[in-house]
Simulated scan of single mutants.
Amino acid sequence: MDVLINVFVALHIIGIASLLGGFLTQMKAVGEGAARFGPAMLHGALTMLVTGVALVGLNQADDQTVNNVKIGIKLALLVVILALVYVKRDEERVDKGAFMAVGGLTTVNIFLATVWT
């Protein structure tokens, strides 16, 4: 079971990298007012959602303790991120506030995962 959990952790990290990497590559475009949500950001958020849900299920099936409050907060943040990226994915330009919100919420989600033990 540990190998399967570690595979899903790796996939979850790949999703985070895709979402955050898509955000960071657009930082110059934010200053120019030309930032947009790319497909990598949407796919990264979806990967995070699917693998995160799978990780919770696998950890519970393995009789490991799961902090449901932490998972609930992380899920809520991810749903907001996913909604913003999904709704605005076809727009040629995304306003700076929405774009920065996605980057900020992604960063907060990473810190919740790593700092909150």
Results as ranks from 00 to 15, higher is better:
1 M>D: 00
1 M>G: 12
3 V>G: 04
6 N>C: 06
8 F>S: 01
10 A>M: 06
12 H>R: 08
13 I>Q: 08
13 I>F: 12
13 I>W: 04
14 I>Q: 02
14 I>K: 09
14 I>P: 03
15 G>R: 14
15 G>F: 05
17 A>F: 07
17 A>E: 04
18 S>E: 03
21 G>K: 04
22 G>V: 10
24 L>F: 08
25 T>C: 01
25 T>P: 01
26 Q>W: 07
26 Q>L: 11
27 M>A: 06
28 K>P: 04
30 V>H: 11
30 V>I: 15
31 G>N: 08
33 G>M: 06
34 A>E: 10
35 A>S: 12
38 G>A: 03
43 H>Y: 13
46 L>C: 13
46 L>F: 11
47 T>G: 13
53 V>P: 01
54 A>E: 11
55 L>E: 04
57 G>T: 04
57 G>E: 08
58 L>N: 00
60 Q>C: 01
60 Q>K: 10
60 Q>N: 06
61 A>V: 10
62 D>W: 11
62 D>P: 03
63 D>S: 15
63 D>R: 15
64 Q>H: 09
64 Q>S: 09
65 T>I: 08
70 K>W: 00
70 K>M: 00
74 K>E: 01
74 K>Y: 02
75 L>P: 00
76 A>N: 12
76 A>Y: 03
76 A>M: 05
76 A>T: 13
77 L>G: 12
79 V>P: 10
80 V>H: 06
81 I>C: 14
82 L>A: 13
83 A>C: 01
84 L>C: 03
84 L>K: 02
85 V>M: 02
86 Y>N: 07
87 V>K: 14
87 V>A: 10
89 R>G: 06
89 R>K: 15
90 D>K: 13
91 E>M: 07
92 E>A: 13
93 R>C: 03
93 R>I: 02
94 V>W: 05
95 D>F: 09
100 M>G: 02
102 V>N: 02
103 G>L: 12
105 L>D: 10
106 T>D: 06
108 V>M: 03
109 N>D: 14
110 I>W: 11
110 I>V: 06
110 I>D: 06
114 T>N: 05
114 T>G: 07
117 T>G: 12
